[in-house]
């Protein structure tokens, strides 16, 4: 694959992420989502560089802002949107939603709504791969908010101590909810933190997907050989924390400047400048992706909600004792009344 072919592929991955996120937003506006806890990853699409550098057998955990990662790892947009809408055919049968989407078939060990909650799972998965002598890497994706969580450092320490095939991937979008990263920590050199534990550590420009891809390829290869690392993508979260957040904690000048760090625009400009693709063909690609996502959105909206009886399924494995439904319990009590 030439550089231009790769960049075009990455552009396509990133456009699909943005296009999907725009449909998530539209679905919310149309009151078709389950709730408003929807965290868009627009501005962070260069994570596709990491996703494309991973192998099919690799696994990953994500965070609450993980739609983009999942779609870049091969998720079906219609089933993703169905899950986000709480539909029966969603990836998690309408039980997880946006923040808990997962698919074992694609190696998605789960999105997590506890900041930093899934990081240690990637370390554990890597432990299993090492023990089973499988050449797989587990990637923990998370945001800058989790950079201040203790479990991250416990996980880094374990990964380095046990030489596990893990890549820690921090998408630094500058905000943990409404708190800008420089209000959350005194030292922004996150790569130093990794090196302090004996891990490799790199910070790359998240508006440059080629740089992200190059670093990820190299660090994944090292991780596969038992040399784990931390890769930080410096990005900007274009919109609010969740769908209802209008970002009152930052001014429009900052937003305007931040949105200029657009990995899609920069990839597009480069492609045109390097004659990797013409503007017209990129417009056609964008339109094709938009149609794909429109179609996925309408499909998801047309799907049906789960049957209420499925509520009691999946608490435990199917062959195990189940929870007692409230109505059954009340019936047992009240039917015994004798006076």
């Amino acid at each position: 694959m030439t550089d231009n072919q790769l960049l075009l592929a990455l552009y396509r991955d990133m456009r699909r992420i943005r296009s999907l996120e725009e449909r998530v937003s539209e679905m919310f506006v149309r009151s078709e989502t389950a709730g408003s806890m929807l965290h868009l990853s627009i501005g962070e699409e260069s994570v596709a560089g990491v996703c494309r550098a991973m192998e099919a057998k690799d696994s990953f955990t994500t965070h609450h802002r993980g739609h983009g990662i999942f779609v870049a790892r091969g998720a079906e947009p219609s089933r993703m949107l169905a899950e986000i809408a709480g539909k029966a055919n969603g990836y998690c049968r309408g039980k997880g939603g946006s923040m808990h989407i997962a698919d074992m078939g694609l190696g998605h060990l789960g999105a997590n709504a506890i900041v930093g909650g899934g990081i240690a799972h990637a370390v554990g998965a890597a432990l299993a791969y090492k023990r089973k002598k499988q050449k797989r890497v587990a990637v923990a994706f998370y945001g800058d908010g989790a950079m201040q969580q203790g479990i991250l450092y416990e996980s880094m320490n374990l990964a380095a101590l046990w030489s596990l095939p893990v890549l820690f991937c921090c998408i630094n979008n500058q905000y943990g909810m409404g708190t800008r990263v420089d209000r959350a920590t005194a030292n922004l050199a996150f790569d130093e933190r990794a090196r302090a534990f004996g891990l490799a550590g790199e910070i790359v420009d998240g508006s440059d997907v080629e740089q992200v891809h190059e670093a990820a390829e190299r660090m994944l290869a090292n991780a596969r050989d038992g040399k784990p690392g931390l890769l930080v993508l410096t990005c900007y979260r274009f919109y609010g924390h969740a769908r209802m957040d209008k970002s009152p904690y930052r001014d429009s000048a900052e937003e305007e400047q931040g949105r200029r760090r657009d990995p899609l625009q920069s990839a597009r400009d480069k492609l045109i400048a390097r004659k990797g693709a013409g503007a017209e063909s990129l417009d056609a690609l964008d339109a094709e992706i938009a149609a794909e996502m429109d179609n996925a959105l309408e499909q998801a909206i047309a799907e049906h909600l789960p049957d209420i009886a499925t509520m009691f399924e999946d608490v435990y494995a199917p062959d195990q004792p189940k929870p007692t439904p409230l109505r059954a319990r009340l019936s047992a009590i009240l039917s015994e009344m004798t006076r």
Partner: peptide
């Protein structure tokens, strides 16, 4: 938290 979390991930991955 780190090693219990790792155990969760390991349990999801065949151990």
């Amino acid at each position: 938290p780190g090693f219990v979390g790792a155990a969760v991930g390991a349990a999801m991955s065949g151990l």
